[in-house]
Write a protein that binds this DNA or RNA. Sequence first.
DNA 1: GGCAGACACGAGAGATCGCTCGCATTTCTG
DNA 2: CAGAAATGCGAGCGATCTCTCGTGTCTGCC
Lengths: 226, 226
Amino acid sequence: MPEKTEKPGTAKPGAETTTATEDRPRRRQARGERRIAQLLDAAATVFSTTGYTAASTNAIAREAGVSPGTLYQFFPNKEAIAIELGSRLMHEMRQSYDEALTPIDPGATPIEDVIAGTVDRFIEFNCRHPAFFALMHGPDIPGRIAEEHDALHRTLTARVEALLAPFTPGTPAPTLARTAQMCVGIYKAGLELVLAHEGAEREAYVQELKVTLLRYLSPLVGDVVK
Amino acid sequence: MPEKTEKPGTAKPGAETTTATEDRPRRRQARGERRIAQLLDAAATVFSTTGYTAASTNAIAREAGVSPGTLYQFFPNKEAIAIELGSRLMHEMRQSYDEALTPIDPGATPIEDVIAGTVDRFIEFNCRHPAFFALMHGPDIPGRIAEEHDALHRTLTARVEALLAPFTPGTPAPTLARTAQMCVGIYKAGLELVLAHEGAEREAYVQELKVTLLRYLSPLVGDVVK
DNA sequence: GGCAGACACGAGAGATCGCTCGCATTTCTG
DNA sequence: CAGAAATGCGAGCGATCTCTCGTGTCTGCC
């Protein structure tokens, strides 16, 4: 297939795969760090409104108030911008959900509270960073970001599995895996509905999402639907 | 915003908004109809593998085994191809789900069977036409297709509402609307999981989707989770 | 047979986009 | 202060994409 996404430029200079970290001869100044943050903010805005492929690097630079050349002083290519942005968001999210999921080891907390707490955390994060959803959901993103997305998805389902395991003593592993996948899928569907609404209606959908997860998982905990 | 998706060509000749139907001076021959079907098939393949924006009209023409010029003999632009394809798929789907949903008027059939029947129909359709999902789910599609998508989504949720109404006597309208939205969302999430797997695993996810919907809706019918 | 028009081709016009390059300016270091 | 390096600019290269146009072939109708 000779018409796929080839490197459009004339030549790849050094083929360095490190995103934007210091290799060796790169001593970033404070101004540079500020520009990077500025550019990533702009990229988040543009990505979340137009998607990855439709977003042009010129548009990102303009949104950040700098020239295209300046943008390429800090990022080797367009993909690296998305990678770095995704990586930073993922890092922040990991912090957020580590807080939310680690102290559930004892079986003391009822599953309602586990669901409610987790959902609240994730919803809040995604509302604050709409670019995250756009980046992790676009079917148009090239290889590298898709890999990060897969990695995130795997760790996410693994965490859900671990969270569910103490509640389900006798379930075989493949069934548990499917249950976790389904939970993540339900969460994504709910998130889409939540993001599509505002104010009280949004709250109502958050509640509906919690109810959905609770009802889906209630047989595992031997509960009865109210 | 001067850098948005402008018409790339030199000038829009007549600004005719009719997709590909006969206006007046267009007497299609049998060969032409065959070419159109051929091109739409090719477009379905390309769209479902690369998405809408990444799909090039040249690639569609090549997939169909014709020249780019021939493609533009039958479609005024790239968007029209997607519009026509989406419209044909939507028509076929409407037939399929009219069959599935109309004879449920009596409250005699239990909700399990309603869910199972509907899910089976939709899943079967979407497995047969993977382009439909790609077209209706891409965040990159331009205005017109998004409108069609919204229209489909509205009629779909309306049908689900109508389907749910006899089972829920005392529910207020906004709540019912949210429930229908959630059902469609759950279905979409399940569909994604189903399409991502093969064979027995796929069947297992179909079953899981049915179970999810049943558990979500079970309170409405006064049932108890098994 | 002959003509009108549908069908087919493929080079390329026009436009956008990712990215580069030469050069100017600012900041850091000694 | 002087040199080096980081930062900043913006015109523009090369690639690609959508869509057009001139030209030629095929089909249906008298």
